[in-house]
Simulated assay, not measured.
Amino acid sequence: MNQDLSNSISAVGVNGLLSIVISLICIALAWWALQQVKLDLVVRHPKGPQGKLLHLLLAVVLGRFVAEFLIDYITWSQMIRYMF
């Protein structure tokens, strides 16, 4: 019984760590991709602190959406084994 509980806790820990890593990678990729967006068309001073903060927030939001999709996809693909 303790072995089953230990395996469950270990699996939850691995899933949590995987989610963190995927989220950080997706945020970094979103930051990199947003470097090509011309914020000077929307923001008055894109090189100022507010422009940089907006850039960071956009990267976090976009990266989180992509990470959420990837994490859901991984979870769904793991659930397929219970179908048969």
Rank of each mutant, 00 (worst) to 15 (best):
W31Q: 10
H45V: 00
K47A: 11
Q36Y: 15
V42Y: 12
D40I: 00
L54D: 03
Q50I: 01
L53K: 15
G51P: 09
C26W: 01
H55R: 15
I25S: 03
V60Y: 08
A28C: 04
L62G: 12
V61I: 05
K38N: 13
K52D: 05
I25M: 03
A33W: 14
V60L: 13
L29K: 02
L39E: 03
H45A: 00
W31G: 09
I27E: 07
G48P: 12
R44K: 10
A33R: 14
L53A: 14
I27M: 10
Q50L: 02
W31C: 02
K52R: 15
L53W: 13
L53G: 11
G63T: 07
L34S: 10
L29G: 02
A28E: 06
L62R: 09
H45E: 07
L62D: 09
G51Q: 03
V43N: 03
K38H: 03
W32K: 11
L39P: 13
W31D: 12
V60K: 13
K52A: 04
H55G: 11
K47S: 15
A59S: 15
K38I: 02
P46Q: 03
V37T: 08
L39Y: 01
A59L: 01
K52N: 14
H45P: 02
L41M: 07
K47L: 06
K38S: 08
V42G: 10
W32D: 08
H45R: 11
P49C: 05
A30T: 04
Q36N: 15
K52Q: 15
K47W: 09
A33F: 14
A30C: 09
L57H: 02
L29P: 01
A33M: 14
L41Q: 08
I25K: 01
V43G: 02
P46T: 00
P49S: 12
W31A: 05
W31L: 05
A28W: 07
L34R: 07
Q36F: 14
L24K: 04
L58S: 14
L62C: 13
A28N: 07
K52H: 12
C26A: 05
L53I: 07
V43T: 08
L24P: 01
V42D: 04
P49E: 11
A28G: 06
I25H: 01
Q50G: 01
P49Y: 10
K47Y: 09
I25V: 06
L34H: 06
A33H: 13
G48F: 03
W31I: 00
H55P: 13
L41H: 09
L58E: 06
A59T: 04
P49Q: 12
H45N: 15
V61E: 07
G63D: 09
L56Q: 14
H55E: 10
D40M: 00
L34C: 08
V37S: 06
V42S: 10
P49N: 14
V60E: 08
V37G: 05
A33K: 14
I25E: 00
G48V: 02
H45K: 10
W32P: 00
G48R: 09
V43Q: 12
V60W: 01
V43I: 13
G48Q: 06
L53Q: 14
L56T: 14
L41W: 07
V43W: 02
K52I: 01
V37R: 02
L24E: 03
P49G: 12
L39K: 01
V42E: 07
Q35K: 15
L34G: 06
L29S: 02
A30Y: 08
D40G: 04
P49K: 13
Q35F: 11
W32L: 10
D40F: 00
K52M: 11
Q50T: 04
V42M: 12
A30G: 08
